[in-house]
Simulated assay, not measured.
Amino acid sequence: MKTPIVIQLQEMASDSQNHLPDLLRKALLISSKLGLEDFKSWVISELNGYQSEEDIPRYRIIGSQLKVINPYHGYQPFIIEDGELARVVSEVKIFESVESLQHLISKSNSKNQLTFPFAPEQKAALMRMQGGFAQLEPTRIIGSNQVKSVLEQVRTQLLDWALQLEARGILGDGISFSAEEKAIASKNQSAISIQNFQGVLGDVSGGHISQSMSMTVTPGNFDSLAKYFRQEDVAEEDIKSLEKAITEDPEARESGAFGPKVSNWIGKMTSKAANGSWAVSVGAAGSLLATAIAKFYGL
């Protein structure tokens, strides 16, 4: 007698020596035959990698150590005084497929550390926040054990799902399912599911700036800059704070090399984007602000 495919999946998921992509492919076969589309979509994402930040499950969002790359001393801590901004910026959303993650772990260095770089516009914003002339490239470092934990959670989810199927009398005959089993699966779509908690920690891996360079910011005209920022939903009190910072700072001579008070203002606005009090993604915020201010300075 052939072992039911659901029991096969349980046995495979219970043994950590079994190749995780093989488990996922078996789960893909089961979910396809039962018409469990939500679960099938999750399996395909784990096999092929995630395409959208909105689809990233919470277990694929992990914390990292923020570092800057010092050309003489190697990795050095990158301190962001705003705790909320530091927390959000240090979050790493892992898009890669399980196969890629397994390969990444196998190739990790002797210190078992992995490096996750920032998107270009986010990197530029973080470098501007450092102020001064020694602006060093920031990056995020995580332990390979954190990636292993992601993979183990996928394995556990598969086992739990297979147990849910068995609890409802869905086992299969070899690799086939009866009409009754398919009907049970159809009626229990939401119950036979995975804890696919969505990431709600903000956009920390870049994103497109929703701005047009047709913005009418006239060099030296703060009213035009204020008007542009109002269109981007910047609060009136924040606009007034920027005006004060521009007045008190020396005039910028090159793009990105703003005075300390303007740079601090950009940092505070980026923090607001990170905690949701300004409706712009944190990845886009730094570039949006810096581009407009640079245009005001005529840079």
Rank of each mutant, 00 (worst) to 15 (best):
T139Q: 07
W278P: 02
L101C: 01
S210C: 05
Y72F: 11
V282M: 13
F258A: 02
S281A: 11
A294N: 15
N109C: 04
I239D: 05
T3Q: 14
K272R: 14
Q195W: 06
G256P: 03
L165Y: 05
G174Y: 02
L66W: 01
I80S: 01
Q17A: 14
A185M: 12
M215A: 07
I94R: 00
E81P: 03
T218R: 09
K272H: 08
G220C: 01
H103M: 07
K272N: 02
D203M: 06
I266P: 09
Q231R: 12
P260F: 03
H208T: 15
S263R: 12
E181S: 03
H208S: 14
T216G: 04
P71N: 00
E243N: 13
K187M: 12
E37H: 04
L288D: 12
S31V: 07
S277W: 00
F296E: 01
F78A: 08
L66S: 06
L225R: 10
L24F: 02
I209Y: 05
S52C: 10
Y50F: 12
L288N: 15
F118H: 06
V88N: 11
L163T: 15
I246T: 14
I175E: 09
G63K: 14
N221W: 05
N145P: 00
V234A: 07
S100C: 04
A294S: 15
P250G: 04
Q211T: 09
S144N: 14
E254W: 13
K240P: 00
K123L: 06
M12L: 14
R128W: 01
L20E: 07
L28D: 06
F78I: 10
I44T: 09
Q10F: 00
N264S: 09
K295L: 09
E251W: 12
E251K: 15
S144L: 11
I69A: 01
E248S: 13
T218L: 10
V147G: 04
Q164K: 15
L299E: 02
R25V: 08
I94A: 00
G286E: 03
S210V: 10
E232N: 08
I239F: 04
M213E: 09
M1G: 08
I246V: 15
Q8E: 11
E248Q: 15
S186P: 04
G74Y: 00
E37Y: 03
K295G: 08
M127S: 02
S45N: 13
A290H: 04
A179T: 10
G220H: 01
L159A: 13
K123F: 01
E121P: 07
S178H: 14
S52R: 14
A191F: 13
V6P: 03
M269E: 06
N70S: 11
A284S: 13
L66N: 07
K26C: 08
V89Q: 06
P4F: 00
K123I: 08
Q164H: 10
R60E: 06
